[in-house]
Design a protein around this nucleic acid. Structure first.
Lengths: 193, 193
DNA sequence: GTCTATAATCGGATAGAC
DNA sequence: GTCTATCCGATTATAGAC
C-alpha cells in the first residue's frame, strides 16, 4: 500500500473511533507508520487528509447500500436484506458519527459528503417504498418519504442505543421493531417479478 | 447563581455542543466567567465537572419523558405527545451525543448515566406499549420491547439526519413515519379510561 | 519523498499568595 | 474562595537538511 493510502486508511479508522476533534496528526502518523514530513508532503494538513478519508467512507457506505437496495426481491425483501446486513454495531456508523463533530459540521467541504450520503439514502429508500406501494405490496396510505427517513433513523439511532448499552441488542430490537411495523402494512403474497 | 452552578451549566452547554473531547477547562472558565483557581477549588478537574453536568442532563431528560409517558390518554396519544414535544432538533440530543465520545464511553463513571437513561427509556416505552396491547388498543402481534427500541432509535437517528441535512425536516419525517406505522396497528376507537 | 529541528499555542492541571 | 504563576506534554504545523 502506498504512503498516501496508508495515511487515508489510518485517518478513516481514527475518524471512526475518535471523530475529527479527537484525532491528531500525530496519532495518524503513528497508526500509519508515516513520518511527520512525509505526511505534510502528501497532504496539506488535517482538514485535507480528513476530506480524503470522509469522501471515501461516504462513497463506500453509499455503494454498499445501493447494491442491496437495487438487488432482487420485493420492497420488503430488499429492505430486510439492507437492514439485516452485518454491521460493526458497537463502533457505530462512520458517517453518522461525523454529524456530532462541531468542526466537521462547521466546514462546508467536510460536511458535504455527510449531507449528500444521507440525502441520497433517504431518497433511494423513498423510491423503493413508492415502488412497493405502486405494485400493491404496501398499503397505499403509507408515506414513502416519511417512512424512508424513519428507516434511516432507526439504523442511526440503533447505533446510539447499542453504544449506550454496550450491547448490540437494542440495535437488533430497533431493526426488528421497524420490520414488524412494516410487515403489518404489506401484503406478503405480492412479489416483484 | 452560585459559582458551582455556573460551572455546571456552562459545562452542560459545552458538552452538548462540542462533546467531552472537544471541551477544555479553559472554555468552561471563559463561558462561566469563573477563574482557573476557582474552578479547581469547586471541582477536582474536567472529569468531575463533566460527571456533575452529565448527571444533571440525564436526570432532566428522564424527568421530561416520564411526565409525558405517565400522562393522560391512550398509549398512542401519550406516544404522540412524547414524540411531538418541541425539541432543539439541530443541536441533537445532549445525552445521545455522548455515546459518540470515546473518553466518555471509556470511563464507567461518566458512562453510567448515559446507559441508565436509555435503559430506563426503552423499558418505560415497552411498558406503555404492553399496556396498549393488553387494553386492546394495539395489535396483539406487536412486540413491545422491540418497538420501544425502535421508537427511541427514531428520535436519536432523527437528530443525526437533521444535523446532516442542517434542517429539522428529516427529524419530523422520521417521527411522522413511525407514528404512521404505529397507527396502522392500533384500533383508534380504544381509549384508556 | 522522507527526516529532524523548531515553535507558537492549547490542554489540563498544581502551588502558593491573597 | 479566588487569583496569578508555573509546568509539562500535546497539537498543528513550518523550515530546511538529506
Amino acid at each position: 500500500m502506498s504512503t498516501s493510502e496508508r495515511l487515508i486508511e489510518s485517518t478513516r479508522e481514527l475518524l471512526w473511533e475518535r471523530g475529527y476533534v479527537g484525532t491528531s496528526p500525530k496519532a495518524i502518523q503513528q497508526l500509519s507508520g508515516v513520518g511527520q514530513g512525509s505526511m505534510y508532503h502528501h497532504f496539506d494538513g488535517k482538514p485535507d487528509l480528513a476530506f480524503a478519508a470522509i469522501t471515501r467512507t461516504a462513497e463506500e457506505m453509499r455503494a454498499k447500500a445501493a447494491l442491496e437496495l437495487d438487488g432482487p426481491g420485493s420492497t420488503i425483501e430488499r429492505l430486510t436484506v439492507y437492514l439485516h446486513r452485518e454491521r460493526d454495531v458497537l463502533r457505530g456508523c462512520p458517517v453518522g458519527r461525523l454529524t456530532q463533530d462541531p468542526e466537521v459540521m462547521a466546514d462546508p467541504t467536510l460536511r458535504r459528503p455527510v449531507r449528500e450520503t444521507f440525502g441520497w439514502l433517504r431518497g433511494r429508500l423513498a423510491e423503493l417504498l413508492a415502488e412497493g406501494r405502486e405494485s400493491g405490496e404496501l398499503d397505499p396510505a403509507l408515506d414513502p418519504v416519511a417512512t424512508a427517513s424513519t428507516i434511516v433513523a432507526v439504523l442511526q439511532g440503533g447505533y446510539v442505543l447499542a453504544r449506550a448499552a454496550d450491547s448490540t441488542e437494542p440495535f437488533t430490537e430497533a431493526v426488528e421493531g421497524v420490520l414488524g411495523l412494516l410487515a403489518a402494512r404489506s401484503r406478503p403474497g405480492t412479489r416483484a417479478s
